[in-house]
Write a protein that binds this DNA or RNA. Structure first.
Length: 566
RNA sequence: CGGGAUGUAGCGCAGGUGGUAGCGCACAUGGUUUGGGACCAUGGGGCCGCAGGUUCGAGUCCUGUCAUCCCGACCA
């Protein structure tokens, strides 16, 4: 393609809207533009890469015998009402009405639609297993769209759904998707980790996330260098510590602590560390009020707590409720004398002579000891893993990193098939509920992640597999006839070989062309300059910066071998 | 949804105390240049986010509103 004819609006300066590298580069390299918050258009260069990623996904999905189709994005409410998700999605779902005042939404995810489709099309065990997928636009009215295309409100997702006769079949379908995903992200040259993820209170026997390690990732993951264990922080298990309590138990006392509520204030007041406190949080779990206790410096993990309680909804109780159950204002809750269910973190079991709220506004208890002073505590792992914790598998020190979730595979079990009565007839003619899995990849997010991991001060460094063009030809001086005609010829013959080539035939100075070529990240660059008259061109590799001069006759062979070897 | 910030040319920005809206880049034309974001000359481009208000007069002050970004909360 001739650059003089293309829409590649590169920017010299970084638009104020971007904060992270990939977002800045996508804007600067002219790959995309914002239409609204969390809504983006892909420009020609960006769209080429986008399509290449889609194609990689397609090939690997097809290889595992998944079938591509496309559902509508516009979906009638009934589909979601049957599973209850019309209400569960809440304001995150884009809703609209047709002229007859019927409810519709723009699909945020398609479990219902796929299930209905399979329900009406598949009746016999002979047709199972079956995996269907689509690459399609999704709509979610996120509270906070972020980082450009990383978290947005309109985004393209490859979503796949598997349908199986039984658990063993589901396992196989799930493993097939695991293989496909690994190949997809390998081919995209992403450095990723597969982590165990929480599969929620709603059942489902397994879930893993494909995480691209990055400081800008929104998810926190815990991993073990020695045994390879990796899980996201909602899931990562905290081991029960080994307690060695040889301290003398002091007698409990009530201390007047007016206006001392937060852990920080308490540390100052008592002149001690946050580890000396047990923090008591009051939660509302499906209308039941419960208390949860973690050490003062720890973070409660709501997912773990929710899973333990088996509730559908979990939220912090409001001030009024706290007052009602603890008989004190917020900030003075504690386990002693509470008559509600109390769930304490495993670690709390070993605390001695600690400080906690007295369930009395303005008072705390000091020197509290679990066995002596409290009763009916349930000890469960409910805190979030952190540095200093140990690997639940091999007990070595755990490491913490941030990650971008680019893919998620999930065993749903019968959650949707049961609700929508999606059944098949088995060998004996008996009706059975199908088991389902769902599998997603964010295409735009994958693209941004590739850029996040492959760039330098000059711009993007595309992996060969997803680059918008493989080669760029830069004639130094387009008005020099020798250079112009050599570049033109080279352009034609590379194209004849089926190579994707950009021809910078713009009347720009060399510096501008070089900078643009590096910014947009084309892997191979051929410069036709002074030595054109001797039949020599300059050849540069973006990734390594390696540069040499080669004979024009050898260029095509060199390009071909570099494309393969890149 | 809570906190913070910002809206002035395509992009980046400047415009004390109210008085005819500016700079750099980009763009157009002509010329000189041509191996790392050239130079000279000329030129086009603005509902100063929007709506009210105060004032003889508002980019500037007041009120409201919308949009965008960041932090947090939340999140199949």
């Amino acid at each position: 393609m001739r650059m003089s004819k293309m829409l590649i609006p590169t920017l010299r300066e970084v638009p104020a809207e971007a904060e992270i590298n990939s977002h800045k580069l996508m804007l600067r390299a002219g790959l995309m533009r914002r239409i609204a918050s969390g809504v983006y258009a892909y420009l020609p260069l960006g769209f080429r890469t986008f399509k290449k990623i889609e194609q990689i996904i397609r090939e690997e999905m097809d290889r595992e015998n998944a079938q591509e189709l496309v559902m509508s994005a516009l979906i009638p409410a009934e589909s979601y009402k049957e599973t209850g998700r019309w209400d569960i999605f809440g304001p995150e779902m884009f809703r609209l009405k047709d002229r007859g005042n019927r409810d519709f939404c723009l699909g945020p995810t398609h479990e219902e639609i796929f299930t209905q489709t399979v329900k009406s099309g598949v009746k016999s065990y002979k047709n199972l297993p079956m995996t269907l997928y689509q690459i399609q636009t999704k709509y979610r009215d996120e509270r906070r769209p972020r980082f450009g295309v990383m978290r947005c409100r309109e985004f393209v997702m490859k979503d796949a759904y598997s349908f199986d006769k039984d658990e063993a079949g589901l396992d196989e379908s799930y493993q097939a998707m695991y293989r496909a995903y690994s190949k997809i992200f390998d081919r995209c040259k992403l450095d990723y980790t597969v982590v165990e993820a929480d599969s929620g209170a709603m059942g489902g026997s397994g879930s893993q996330e494909f995480m691209v390690k990055s400081e800008i990732g929104e998810a926190q993951i815990a991993y073990c260098e020695s045994c390879g264990y990796a899980a996201n922080d909602e899931k990562a298990e905290c081991l029960e510590p080994v307690f060695n309590n040889d301290k003398e138990l002091l007698s409990m006392e009530e201390v007047k602590t007016p206006n001392v509520k937060t852990i920080e204030q308490l540390c100052e007041f008592f002149n001690c560390e946050a580890t000396n406190f047990a923090k008591t949080l009051i939660y509302k779990a499906d209308d039941v009020i419960i208390a949860a206790i973690v050490r003062g410096d720890r973070e409660l993990n709501e997912t773990k707590l929710q899973n333990y309680l088996g509730c559908n909804e979990l939220e912090m109780a409001d001030d009024e409720t706290v007052y009602k159950v603890t008989n004190a204002k917020v900030g003075f809750a504690g386990p002693i004398g509470l008559s509600i269910k109390i769930v304490a973190d495993l670690e709390v079991k070993g605390m001695v002579n600690f400080i906690t709220g007295a369930n009395n506004t303005g008072y705390h208890y000091n020197n509290v000891n679990i066995d002596r002073d409290t009763k009916n505590l349930e000890f469960v792992d409910i805190r979030t893993i952190t540095l200093g914790d140990h690997c639940p598998k091999c007990k070595n020190e755990i490491s913490i990193a941030r990650g971008i979730e680019v893919g998620h595979i999930f065993k749903l079990g019968d959650k949707y098939t049961k609700a929508l009565d999606c059944t098949y007839l088995d060998q004996n003619g008996r009706s059975q509920t199908m088991l389902m899995g769902c599998y997603g990849i964010g295409v735009g997010r994958t693209m941004a992640s590739i850029i996040e991991q492959n760039n330098d001060e000059s711009g993007i460094i595309w992996p060969m597999a997803v680059t918008p063009y493989q080669v760029i030809i830069i004639p130094i001086n387009i008005s020099n006839e020798i250079q112009a005609s050599m570049a033109e010829q080279l352009y034609n013959s590379l194209q004849d070989e089926g190579i994707e080539v950009l021809f910078d035939d713009r009347k720009e100075r060399p510096g501008v062309k070089f900078n643009d070529a590096e910014l947009i990240g084309i892997p191979l660059r051929i410069t036709v300059g002074k030595k054109a008259s001797e039949g020599i061109v300059e050849y540069k590799i973006r990734k390594t910066g390696d540069m040499d001069e080669i004979d024009i006759k050898k260029v095509i062979a060199r390009v071909k071998s570099d494309i393969l070897a890149y």
